[in-house]
């Protein structure tokens, strides 16, 4: 019957002409998308090129062992700032890694379904959105006002507040990824919950845990706002109970100075900071990407 009415029944066209309105709209939208994706990459490359061009000019061995120059001096470096950043980030990691991972174990394994875990998870998620300057304000109120001095301790504590939720939430995900069969096998061998965690679950989840820690360290290394009024800045070598220099605060302080030498140092410090952060990011990707459970 259909065959007989073939003359009146028109098949819709199956091929599109490139310039009919529907196809045209697709082409226009696709090109807008491609353009904006390219456009979004421009700032990254611009930043990198400027860092290499302006920071690389100043790169020398002196940067790593010399102290910052005074106003009209030439030369100088920021060895104390590199040391300060390493110390404060290290301190923050020492606080936040045990804190984050132990809490994550509870969230992912021991208290999976109870209310406390849910509330703690919610708190950690909220803390990831905490503006970094408020971590500084808190450390100022809780450490600086009590110790009556700006110090590297206060800076490290401020940074640890930003690292704890990152470590905790990534560690929770990593522990959750461990297959149930492995946990069951450990219990079947008569492991206590702790033994199964320490001997089976944590080793298997290790790449994920390390990824989270490295990412958190990378984030903390670049933070400036929490250090502005906790560690302050100093032109001298690290003394932990005194104001302490850091790369990030050095960049901020020197960026507004009218001296060419200081501005060059700010670019060089940025280059070193970005290199550190990128290397950490690449390490975390390499570890996280290699072993997907």
């Amino acid at each position: 019957m259909k065959n007989s009415s073939n003359e009146t029944f028109h098949l819709p066209k199956l091929e599109r002409q490139p310039f009919e309105p529907r196809a045209l709209k697709s082409i226009v939208l696709s090109s807008i998308t491609i353009l904006s994706a390219v456009f979004a990459c421009v700032p990254l490359f611009s930043v990198l090129i400027m860092l290499i061009y302006r920071g690389g000019k100043r790169l020398s061995f002196e940067l790593f062992y010399a102290l910052p120059p005074t106003a009209f001096e030439t030369g100088g470096g920021f060895g104390n700032a590199i040391l300060g950043t390493l110390f404060m980030v290290g301190l923050a990691a020492l606080i936040s890694v045990p804190f984050g991972i132990l809490a994550a174990i509870y969230l992912a394994e021991l208290g999976k379904y109870n209310k406390v875990a849910q509330i703690a998870r919610f708190c950690a998620k909220t803390m990831t959105g905490l503006p970094s300057i408020l971590a500084g304000v808190f450390a100022y109120a809780a450490v600086v006002l009590i110790m009556r001095n700006y110090s590297a301790w206060a800076g490290g504590i401020a940074l640890s507040l930003l690292m704890i939720p990152v470590v905790m939430l990534t560690a929770e995900e990593a522990i959750k990824m461990v297959p149930q069969a492995m946990k069951d096998a450990a219990f079947g061998m008569g492991c206590t919950q702790t033994q199964s965690l320490v001997k089976v679950i944590l080793p298997v989840a290790m790449p994920g845990l390390i990824t989270g820690v490295v990412l958190a360290v990378a984030r903390a290394a670049g933070e400036t706002a929490p250090l502005l009024f906790t560690a302050l800045f100093s032109d001298y070598w690290l003394r932990v109970n005194e104001p302490t220099a850091s790369l990030a605060v050095l960049i901020y302080n020197y960026s507004g100075m009218p001296f060419e030498n200081q501005i060059e140092l700010a670019w060089a410090a940025s280059l070193i900071l970005v290199l550190m952060v990128f290397i950490l990011n690449i390490i975390s990707r390499a570890i996280g990407g290699k072993k997907r459970i």
């Binding site: 979004a40 700032p43 990254l44 990030a248 901020y252 900071l273 970005v274 952060v277 990011n281």
Partner: peptide, 16 residues
């Protein structure tokens, strides 16, 4: 590349 944009510290963006 887009994720690396997020890794650059904000003080470096300020300088830039």
């Amino acid at each position: 590349i887009i994720e690396l944009l997020a890794a650059i510290p904000s003080v470096v963006y300020g300088l830039w």
